[in-house]
Amino acid sequence: METFVQVLIDGMLNGMVYALVAAGLCLIWGLMDVINFAHGEYLMVAMYVSYWLGFLLNVDPVVSVVAAGIFIFILGVLTYQLIIRYTIGKPGLVALLATFGLAIFLKNVCLNRFSPNFLILSGTWLGDKTLNLGNLIFSLPQVVAAFMALVVVGLIYALINTTRFGWAIQATALDRDAAELMGINTERIYLLVFGISGACVGIAGGIMPSYLAVHPEVGSMFGLIAFVCVAMGGFGSIPGAFLAGLLVGSVEALAGFYLAPVFKYIAVFGLYLAVVCLRPKGIFGW
């Protein structure tokens, strides 16, 4: 029983980070019905930012989170300005393929610059410290990452539901033309939301090097899992993505522990298929 609880909570901690990555994707999907295929690659770039800040300037990932967030915010804004802007109003496939091209580009630029080697940041503050609660043992970096993810997802949710800016986002998502008529600068909303989505994944990627090796392929899996979380949660629903993130994290950990490590992603994707079989628009979809 104790093992079960340990594995489950480990999975949930991981799941909160998935939820943060997914929240970023969810925002764009809900607002402009665009799937950003390069989302996982943003995460990878954020990890590199944090890694190099730690390696060259001795900045701890806990601090570089801010820098990574800002960096990916800018990357998101640039992506919108240079690519996504031209795909609005075109079939959904166009944006998806353009961002797929961007994903290939980012992945291979990192491969070219930083080699395909796994880079591990040693001597961080959190390092291999653990948090002991009775007989349960958690790795401190993961607990901090999960906590940070929880806070950021909460902030995003609050931003969307309680501020004027958030209401403007919702209005734009419902009906762009009507929002425009109400005096909302929808172009600016799109731009900022793309940036915020980047910042979410940037924060997630910023903290990760304290417990995960960095390499050019690291983002692909996170990106896929984020797609699954968003779709499982339901169209553009942040609470849905959060719940789905937790579910995916727990299923991944439990399947990895009780079946075999190779089965964990099979279980995760199987779970998605099972959920959409019962609810074709996701858990909170309508």
Binding site: W29, D33, I35, G92, L96, L224, F227, V228, A231, Y265, I266, F269, G270, Y272, L273, V276, P280, K281, G282
Partner: peptide
Amino acid sequence: GHYFAIATFAIVEI
């Protein structure tokens, strides 16, 4: 829509 696309992703990964 996207739900279909992501389901096919999931199948390929499985």
